[in-house]
Amino acid sequence: MIDTINAAARKVPAWVLYILLILPIPYLFYSAATGGMGVEPINALEREIGELSLKLIIFGLLITPLRKYLKLNLLKFRRAIGVMAFVYVAVHLGIWVVLDMSLRFDQMWSDIWKRPYITIGMVAFVAMIPLAVTSNNLSVRKLGGAAWRKLHKLVYPIAVLGAVHFIMVQKVWEVEPMVYLAVVVALIGTRYVPNIKARLSTSV
């Protein structure tokens, strides 16, 4: 089963994923513009795109544990997932700036500093920029593998900030965003669990 998936994955070029992941964006805009997202389409679209970006970040975090525990190798798709997660976050931000806030820059500027959930969302977006910019082979070579990997561990705090941002947008404590945070924390946790195991077994 795993071998079949691995073999199939080897045949699919990574660019296919870019195409597949970009398609929901025009579809959702079309749906919002034609009444498919209810009578308040701006907020619905903003939330939908935001939630999808968090899902993509979670998929990106899934690649390593899938390989480690299930021997499922989807590593070649991780860059596409990460870059597209950034694209979704950028579109989410764009919707906020242009459609939601109607380019009221004064209000946005004070909101970024005064509203913790917007501050958190903004920090997460800014932290994603260096990751998006260095998502190419040239940057990996220039930085060197170790430094590049270290830089890209920034995705851990970014994922946590994204999930916290989602929780804070709600008026009450809702289950769904909490599940996202739990999944993010668990996936980051898998990076550290084996280390503890290894340390324990060597100390015995």
Binding site: S110, K114, R115
Partner: peptide, 15 residues
Amino acid sequence: PRWSQASERMIGGGL
């Protein structure tokens, strides 16, 4: 505390 009340959006104006 979590958002400004300075402005609002009228429902029904579309995207």
